[in-house]
Amino acid sequence: MKNKIYNYLIQSIFLMLIIGTSSCLTGNLEDIPEFNDAEITDVKFDFRYKDANSNWVDGEPIVKVVRLNVEKDVNVSEGIIEVTLSLPAPDASFTNEIRRQVSLTNLVGKFNISTAATIEPLNDAPTLGIPGDFSSGRRYRVIAADGTTTKEWTIKVNPLPEINAFEGYYQESGTLVRIGNAPDELDAEIYLQTIDSKTCRAQAGKSVFNNSGILYQIQVNADNTVTIKSDPNSVVEIFPQGGVTSTYDPATKTFDLHYHYRNGERLFDTKLVLIE
């Protein structure tokens, strides 16, 4: 009986200590201000994909996340954010094949909003944090920390840049002939960047000059001949060689290119073979 009374007293004292301590913890705290800001301060977009070369212990592919590059135009007064996205360069996992799967219909949106505010999608806007369709303007409502102030925002995502069938990393070989010198052997990884569905931009003589301003464009024609011309941003003007045809072999994904600049003083005969 004495033990029961003793245990009861101990439990009662312990309970009183908890209540007293809680009162002390909350009694002197300052009130948190109720902010009335309801802004979207930043927008981010990800793309998720399954990496066939990396598996969990159960054999399932690992889901990887790629952060897209974002340029945005924010109109705070109108509550409109216009977004232009670009894709990171390919790598061993995020290959061009995977890059071509990125579309406005499978993006993951993540927004930064005002302190202690909340956000909710309106109409058919995607839920943030999971893949959704941003192919048209989407509206969201931000509720400020005061629980009363709200603001509706429209997110407009511009069409994604095109990635044509030729874009990617190529191994360059061949020769560069400079008048009065022995031929230089070309040996470098060259990246072909999409201009349009049939045209890419490339850097000339990377392994010899490594001058990123020497640029040319290659357009693949219907008969797999290739038209070569100078890129508008090139520091020199590049021309196709006369009397020889540049070609593309779709079976081996190989370019056989012949061009020059400085009136033939820099003469290129080169092959580009797709690496990935």
Rank of each mutant, 00 (worst) to 15 (best):
residue 244 V to K: 09
residue 37 D to V: 04
residue 182 A to M: 12
residue 58 D to H: 05
residue 70 V to T: 15
residue 83 V to H: 06
residue 110 K to H: 13
residue 16 M to W: 10
residue 110 K to G: 00
residue 106 N to R: 12
residue 38 A to H: 08
residue 58 D to T: 06
residue 19 I to C: 09
residue 228 I to Y: 05
residue 221 N to P: 02
residue 203 Q to V: 12
residue 69 N to R: 12
residue 63 V to I: 15
residue 148 T to N: 14
residue 197 S to H: 11
residue 267 L to R: 12
residue 102 V to E: 06
residue 229 K to E: 09
residue 10 I to G: 03
residue 39 E to H: 07
residue 202 A to P: 04
residue 131 P to Q: 11
residue 159 P to M: 06
residue 264 G to W: 08
residue 30 E to Q: 10
residue 76 V to A: 13
residue 43 V to H: 09
residue 105 T to I: 06
residue 202 A to D: 01
residue 204 A to K: 09
residue 60 E to R: 15
residue 233 N to P: 01
residue 58 D to A: 05
residue 1 M to Q: 13
residue 234 S to K: 04
residue 53 N to D: 13
residue 201 R to E: 13
residue 115 T to S: 08
residue 66 V to L: 02
residue 87 L to R: 06
residue 242 G to W: 02
residue 164 N to E: 04
residue 230 S to P: 03
residue 36 N to D: 15
residue 135 S to Q: 10
residue 204 A to Q: 06
residue 245 T to F: 01
residue 47 F to H: 07
residue 267 L to K: 11
residue 186 L to F: 01
residue 250 P to M: 04
residue 94 F to I: 01
residue 119 I to V: 14
residue 261 Y to T: 03
residue 91 D to Q: 07
residue 140 Y to R: 02
residue 84 T to S: 14
residue 73 D to M: 07
residue 31 D to A: 14
residue 177 V to S: 14
residue 266 R to T: 02
residue 227 T to H: 08
residue 150 T to V: 15
residue 47 F to P: 07
residue 194 T to M: 08
residue 53 N to Q: 13
residue 114 S to C: 07
residue 276 E to L: 00
residue 199 T to D: 08
residue 272 L to F: 09
residue 36 N to E: 13
residue 181 N to M: 14
residue 101 Q to C: 07
residue 246 S to C: 05
residue 236 V to P: 06
residue 50 K to H: 10
residue 276 E to K: 00
residue 26 T to P: 00
residue 106 N to E: 10
residue 114 S to M: 06
residue 105 T to M: 13
residue 195 I to W: 01
residue 168 G to C: 03
residue 101 Q to R: 10
residue 186 L to H: 02
residue 129 G to Y: 08
residue 243 G to L: 07
residue 159 P to A: 07
residue 186 L to M: 12
residue 105 T to Y: 02
residue 59 G to R: 10
residue 36 N to W: 02
residue 120 E to A: 14
residue 126 P to K: 13
residue 35 F to M: 06
residue 114 S to D: 09
residue 235 V to E: 11
residue 168 G to T: 02
residue 220 V to N: 02
residue 37 D to Y: 13
residue 94 F to V: 02
residue 53 N to R: 13
residue 228 I to D: 12
residue 170 Y to F: 10
residue 186 L to W: 01
residue 96 N to G: 11
residue 91 D to K: 05
residue 103 S to L: 04
residue 272 L to W: 04
residue 144 A to M: 10
residue 89 A to G: 10
residue 245 T to Q: 15
residue 215 L to Q: 05
residue 40 I to D: 08
residue 203 Q to T: 10
residue 210 N to G: 04
residue 240 P to C: 11
residue 81 I to Q: 10
residue 258 H to G: 01
residue 168 G to W: 01
residue 164 N to K: 03
residue 226 V to A: 05
residue 62 I to M: 13
residue 131 P to Y: 12
residue 135 S to R: 08
residue 91 D to M: 05
residue 36 N to Y: 08
residue 48 R to S: 11
